[in-house]
Design a protein around this nucleic acid. Sequence first.
DNA 1: TACGGCATGTAATCGGTTACATGATTTA
DNA 2: TAAATCATGTAACCGATTACATGCCGTA
Lengths: 177, 177
Amino acid sequence: MTDASPEAHLGPSAYIVLGLLGQYGPGTSYDLKNWADASVGNFWTFPRSQLYAEPQRLAQLGLLEERQEEGGRRKRTYQVTDAGRAALQAWLAEPAGFPELRDLGLLKLFFAEQGSAERVRQLAAEQLGLHRARLKEYERQADCWPTTLPAEQPLRMGLLYERASLAFWGVLAEPEA
Amino acid sequence: MTDASPEAHLGPSAYIVLGLLGQYGPGTSYDLKNWADASVGNFWTFPRSQLYAEPQRLAQLGLLEERQEEGGRRKRTYQVTDAGRAALQAWLAEPAGFPELRDLGLLKLFFAEQGSAERVRQLAAEQLGLHRARLKEYERQADCWPTTLPAEQPLRMGLLYERASLAFWGVLAEPEA
DNA sequence: TACGGCATGTAATCGGTTACATGATTTA
DNA sequence: TAAATCATGTAACCGATTACATGCCGTA
């Protein structure tokens, strides 16, 4: 609660922390990691260590309340404050802008002419494998859940994206006529 | 050519610079910007300033040769060296790994239950607009080119992705039954 | 010749990533 | 009680983003 400036510019990972704590209740950094792995981690990756550093920043800003255990591991439990909830809602209300794809496979494909001739086929085979595995995983998850709540929609997008990727790399993997 | 260590770990933007210079010949940072805007920038964004800083790093490593103009603006022209070509090819040969989606829209959708009730519909409408515009742009580009060279394939993926996104947000934009 | 925009950079900051380090808890 | 794994964090580096600063050129 050092700083009360309501206009600090937070990055996406800050809002992931706020959002997860808001959605699943108070928890430790390790809880955050588990929640993220199971949900938002599918379409937004970051290293665990962010989930230790970010909550401390947010606590400084008064958006989280930190309670440190006395005995044992002195573990830190975080909880969203009213200011934190307000910050999350303000962020939710802003336009989201355009998504970014960040696909090293496409990047390498783009420059493939400067590499070996076989590379395109190899790359396509590799990507096909990855996408097939990911799609299977998504389908498994989709079987368990109704996919009707907003929080479950990203999984639907994941399915669409994986199928599109499979179609895309599929034609590149075939020996051409 | 200060450092000759062949094992420096370069980031993706380094290879974008190497790749663009390899593909379109020697050029300045500004040339790089224009090339990137027209091609790889569609699916991998970064600020212009990277295109000034990165080539200097690469020149230090001996992967680019820098020639600075004497008179006028003392502008810097870069050219890939043999070492640079080798580095690019080594990178191309490595597996690409899994792509990342980085979609703030999906993120906000995931947390939408904590915001206002109208937000999902609004968000969907916003995203639909963005994706429609992007799709139209891709289609325009696809009309001009054959889409058969490797370097033109990412555009095909772009088309697939945009159509999937339209389908996804489309069902969320409709007033539910 | 004044102005606006195109072209070219630099500096400082900050978030993200990697690597390291170690305390608890469980299980054999 | 030893080993393995789970859980928890710290430190330092580095790339990326933002903001700033300014020179050149075409045109009115």
